[in-house]
Design a protein around this nucleic acid. Structure first.
Lengths: 213, 213
DNA sequence: GGGAATAACTGAACATGATCATAATTGATC
DNA sequence: GATCAATTATGATCATGTTCAGTTATTCCC
């Protein structure tokens, strides 16, 4: 319904947005985000300098446009792989691992993207929805793990999902944000953190080693 | 030794830096960070516009200058209160709670500060040191808890501290960064998350309810 | 198809963070 | 206390994100 032969206006706008996104991505990849000027993007996209800001609120929003499609692909692929995997931690690593691998392809750009993800006030249609879907899927995995008897059932799936997601956020930030963690340490470190979240740090468990893995 | 009657130059520089910091803080508080121009800060501090950037690398660095003294006070106060408190989670909440209460005083400015904390590449003398001291103190609290038999001893204190700190970072980000969490939810939510980190999400514990609180 | 109404586009202009060649200030040396 | 090298300060200038009054393109209606 919004597809097919829409009006000329609509088609032009669509095409223009795609040219803008492609131009921005290309330039961000080769020159870096800060080093790319809005004017360069406009020139490459074949539009006037003022036109850009009819399509995006500001330059940072271009980060989201260039990221969104990739993020959805990563998310779908991780979700599919998780469905073929046993064990909550391994499932989560399918999902999280896709993103860390992706971020590693262009660390500088990914840093800017992650900053956008964590610090942009969320409009419901853009970043917000993406994040919410992500959180919901983690909650679904938790719920299934509860049904399998892997996770305690006196918690809402959302609550447990937050606790797990916190580790993903933290390791991502430590690596891309503060740059205090090395890339190689992220996946093993995150995995261990998720395990510790499941096992608990406390001493009120017996047979810890036998029961976990 | 670097105190006392240092040269005139040194004294002038010190005084100027303090005027700059005071001017910046005042303006950030009343107008907001983005809305305050570098020129305003210079005018209020009684310096030329170019002089500011002999003292700070860029405008964002002013956020650190205005925050550092306060952060040290909060840290010391939280540390002292933690020393008078029993139980790792309660101790951590003494520390983390000081910061959340402080951030609540000016949410917009705190958002900018927190962004700086998480995304500035760390010079060893500035933000980096502050963060490292913070992490080390959390590790010390963990180590003491291990000695008390509260926390399992097959983990390095640093490892366990990271897992706990992750929740603080996540709740702070969710509140100030993405603004998806309400201020009132932060302290109880964070406390619960820390408890869950200690207890574990898994099902391989008996008598969970009795043992935790 | 013509013309009014609406939407989209444009680049000059603006605001502001940061730079840099030049000027002023300080402190050592005699 | 005069001279000079070194440090510090300055504001005009630049670069760039963003805006806006004016222009052009599209759609709608008869």
């Amino acid at each position: 319904m919004p597809e097919a032969a829409a009006g000329l206006r609509e088609r032009n706008k669509r095409a223009k947005l795609e040219r803008i996104t492609a131009a921005a991505l290309e330039l961000f990849r080769t020159k870096g985000f800060e080093e790319t000027t809005a004017r360069e993007i406009c020139e490459r996209a074949g539009i006037g300098t003022g036109t850009l800001f009819l399509y995006v609120r500001d330059k940072r929003e271009l980060l989201f446009l260039t990221f969104e499609a990739d993020a959805r692909r990563l998310f779908a692929a991780g979700k599919a792989e998780a469905a073929r995997t046993a064990g909550l931690v391994d499932q989560l690593m399918c999902l999280f691992g896709r993103f860390t691998a992706y971020y590693a392809l262009d660390r500088a750009l990914s840093k800017a993207i992650v900053q956008e993800l964590f610090f942009r006030a969320h409009d419901p249609g853009g970043l917000g929805r993406l994040t919410r879907e992500f959180a919901e899927h983690v909650a679904d995995l938790v719920e299934a793990a509860q049904a399998r008897g892997e996770i305690r059932t006196d918690l809402t799936p959302a609550r447990a999902a937050m606790a797990l997601f916190a580790h993903y956020a933290y390791w991502t930030l430590g690596w891309l944000g503060t740059e205090m963690l090395a890339r190689e340490s992220v996946e093993p470190g995150l995995r261990r953190a998720l395990e510790l979240q499941v096992e608990g740090l406390g001493t009120n468990h017996d047979n810890r080693i036998e029961n976990t893995r």
